[in-house]
């Protein structure tokens, strides 16, 4: 029993982190049919911006608790600026192209952003340990855990619930569901699809940046941090079923738990545990756990 508790907690914490990353990805795919590789860049930008914002705040001698606010602010600024810039400046000209071409376009954006980040922030790692250390530790099964992880889990929960509420309980959300269901019909009914695309991409970008901003205090922010999360987030989204929020949540939790159990009981296999989960899920359910039924077009 004392073994299972830490494994479960680490798994849930890691799963929460994965969910923050994959929620935006699955949302963008669900609405726009873009598998957004640049999601990794937005994650990295969020992390770098969080370091800059929170460091400026702390260096200004302001109360340390405010640095949490800075993390959120960084995510909103990055998502609110870069999201619309990418969607209006580039992607809106590309709709209707093949899915693979869209993947490549976002991959090109990713490559460009890698160098932009390097030019702006340099190659040295950035550290922001204050928000991580501030909430202190708590004890579980005799081991110390950072309370920051609880914050992460809380943020993932809040984000997930907020998305569900916005999608199913608001007028705009219901309109968006209509767009997801049938884009052409929605346009015919007078829905401004272009506006929804912009909004969706901005929200997705903000979620990616939020994932980065909340991760920044726990790691050293280095060039290339975006690469590592892309495939992870892709795996989660595919496991859950593309475009499904509930699927992303379940996929994130599944991957998180499997990974922490592997680390504990079979550390050599950690490297491919995630891909093994993905392969097994796809073999059992070819379109992921929560795949939408598709009409067969004759």
């Amino acid at each position: 029993m004392s073994n299972i508790l830490p494994v479960a907690f680490d798994g849930i914490a890691y799963g929460s982190w994965l969910f923050l990353m994959s929620a935006g990805l699955t949302l963008i795919y669900g609405v726009m049919r873009i598998l957004n590789v640049a999601h990794g860049s937005l994650y990295a930008l969020g992390a770098y911006a969080a370091c800059s914002f929170a460091s400026a705040w702390l260096n200004g001698g302001l109360p340390a608790a405010g640095s949490f606010g800075m993390l959120l602010l960084a995510a909103i600024v990055v998502g609110g600026l870069v999201g619309p810039l990418l969607e209006r400046g580039l992607l809106q000209w590309m709709y209707g192209k093949d899915e693979v071409v869209l993947v490549l376009i976002t991959y090109a954006v990713f490559l460009i952003m890698e160098d932009v980040i390097k030019l702006v922030w340099g190659v040295d790692s950035l550290l922001l340990p204050e928000p991580y250390a501030l909430p202190g530790n708590f004890s579980l099964g005799g081991l110390a855990y950072p309370a920051y992880n609880l914050l992460l889990i809380g943020m993932a929960l809040v984000t997930g619930l907020a998305l569900v509420w916005a999608l199913y309980r608001t007028r705009q959300g219901k309109l968006l569901l209509a767009v997801i269901h049938d884009r052409e019909m929605s346009m015919a009914m007078g829905i401004n699809v272009s506006r929804f695309y912009l909004a969706t991409f901005t929200v997705g970008a903000t979620l990616a940046a939020l994932g980065g901003a909340l991760t920044a205090p726990t790691v050293a922010v280095t060039p290339g941090i975006g690469v590592e999360v892309i495939v992870l987030a892709f795996a989660v989204v595919v496991i859950g079923g593309l475009g499904s929020l509930g699927g992303a949540a379940l996929g994130a939790l599944l991957v998180g738990l499997v990974r922490s159990a592997t680390v504990r009981y079979w550390p050599e296999a950690e490297l491919f545990s995630i891909y093994a989960v993905m392969a097994i899920v796809l073999i059992a359910r070819p379109k992921g756990l929560f795949a939408a039924q598709e009409a067969r077009k004759i």
Binding site: M94, I105, A108, V109, F110, L111, I112, E114, D115, V116
Partner: peptide, 13 residues
């Protein structure tokens, strides 16, 4: 060089 490659890719597409 990554940026150059990315820009060339975008231009071609």
């Amino acid at each position: 060089w990554q940026m150059s490659l990315g820009l060339a890719m975008l231009a071609i597409i």
